[in-house]
Structure formats: C-alpha cells, structure tokens
Amino acid sequence: MPEAKLPDSKLTARNVDVFYGDKKAIDDVSIDIGNGVVTAFIGPSGCGKSTFLRTLNRMNDTIAGARVTGQILLDGEDIYDRDMDPVALRARVGMVFQKPNPFPKSIYENVAYGPRIHGLAQAKPEMDAIVEKALTRAGLWNEVKDRLTDAGTALSGGQQQRLCIARAVAVSPEVILMDEPCSALDPIATARIEELIEDLKDRYAIVIVTHSMQQAARVSQRTAFFHLGKMVEYGDTDQIFTNPREERTKDYITGRYG
C-alpha cells in the first residue's frame, strides 16, 4: 500500500475496511491526514469516497448494516474506542454535505444550533459572538447580518452551503469533512467556496471529496485516489496530477474512465 507519513498528522487510518451488510465498500485503506492542509479524495463514482469520509466522524454509525473495522486515530485517540463518544467526536470532526441542508430555522438558529446543543455559550452575547464569528469565517456575515432571523432555506444555494459551513465552524471543530460541497452550485458560488476553503485551511484539517480534477488541483495540497474501494495512490497534489505513480491514477486523471 502506498502510504505517506506526514510530520503533522491529525487523522490516521490504519487498515480500514467498511462493510454494508456483506458487501465490502472500503478495502484496507491506510492514510494520514495532515493538519493545516487540504486533502482531496478523488475517484470514480461508487469507489467509496463518501463511505470512507463518513467513517472519519462515525456517520456510518447512523446507517443500518454499516460496519467498520481497522483503526482510525484522531490525535492519537482511537475514534472507534468505547470511550470515544460519537457526540463529542462529531463536534470535533464536522461535516458539510453535497446538497446544502440548512435546518428549517432562522439563519441565526442554524448557526447557533451546534453551540447550543453542546452548551458552548453561557449567555446570549456570547452566542451572538459565536454566530458572528462563524458567519464571518464562512464569508457570509456581510450578506446576512441584517437578516439573521430569515429562514435559512430562503438563501441562495451557494449562501446555503456557506451557512452549512458556518454551522460546522461554529462548534470549533478540528477537522472539516466536505463531501462534494460544490456539486450543487454554479461556478461563481463554487469559486467562493473554494476561496473559503483556502482561508479556512490554516485553522482546520480539511478533507474534500470532489469529482472535479480542477477543483482538487486548485484547493488541495494532498490528494488520495480511490478505486473500487481501495486507495490506489496518495501524495502531494502536484505530484499526483503531474506525475502519478500508478497506471490507474493516470488513466483516471487523463479522463480515460470515471
């Protein structure tokens, strides 16, 4: 297995298999995900990118019949350990989905939701500050500061996706997982999200699944190529795109299949 040890690794996966019922969707994946960098997962449809992404914050627990074996460490702690509570884990490893999915609540409440359930703010001013900070980080504050009580669903698609990022950021996560965050957006909104990822990458470890080679090349520093449930190749984005070691990676990047 190709495997690159990073000096500052945030998440470490070792020999991870994922099953849906009897079907193996992820086969023996080991990877180190670095802090302060953007890692891109690429690969043809159905190869298991989303599945692997979901194992990183145990969202697979919510799928009936899904089973994970192997080891995943967050700062050296096994996240599938009995002592690790998925509630706390998911606050530390946030997630942004393919389709923007704001809650049917106001913009303010969408962002305040996480801090509220985790009890991160004692009083209203503190909550206001958290909401403002999160919306600012998500680059949305100036657009919505006068309409915080409007429904989150009333925003445009791109704004909704940034709201979802703000929502994730509001609980001060350490890792943010993004599953094709731009696939439902137009090019302008996509560009904004990409800028945002660039801004956020210093504070968080970011993992992004994408079908767009260009996007992976633009936003990520590290890229992992998945194929049929296996991680075929993992390395610096530049190297993967200019000089892939594996034949299959090359075929995929040059558009031979996928």
């Binding site: 509630v87 606050a91 989905f97 999915n101 929502r167």
Partner: peptide
C-alpha cells in the same frame, strides 16, 4: 439530509428528532 446535518454536528438522535 436534514437529520444527517444535525447528527454530523454531534447532536444526539433525540436532539435531532426534537429540534
């Protein structure tokens, strides 16, 4: 996706259901 969004933020199932 709505429930997933909430669960992914670390809400428990019952919090997700109620809120």
């Amino acid at each position: 996706a709505m429930a997933d969004g909430s669960l992914a933020m670390g809400a428990t199932k019952s919090e997700t259901i109620k809120k």
